[in-house]
Amino acid sequence: MRKLLGIIALTVFSIILFLTAVHLRSFGSPPHAEMDKYFIEHAQKEASANNVVTSVVFDYRGFDTLGEATVLFTAVSGVLMALRHYGGRKK
């Protein structure tokens, strides 16, 4: 039963990935670029900043940056929690 399920899952995922690979653009040609064009044309007016990369990172995709900051916070608190044992022994 488990083997059958595994074979079915393998087939389905292989078909999906194969279809995706067939519909990829050929190597070297640019991907769909509607959003790029929008950013380049409107970033100076809407975000009033010269650096389009920063206006994408902090304005249009600011939620992603919030997640990145959370990842850093989690890493720092993990390190402090793992090493607090050694630091607190003498103090």
């Binding site: 009033s48 920063t54 902090f58 304005d59 940056t65 900051a69 916070f73 402090l80």
Partner: peptide, 26 residues
């Protein structure tokens, strides 16, 4: 210029420098 971008830059910079420095310090 920049609207909220400089404020967010300053806050994220403060956060990153405090986090990375505290790892090295401990």
């Amino acid at each position: 210029t920049g609207g909220t971008l400089p404020y967010l830059n300053i806050f994220v910079g403060l956060k990153v420098l405090a986090g990375l420095t505290s790892i090295v310090l401990i």
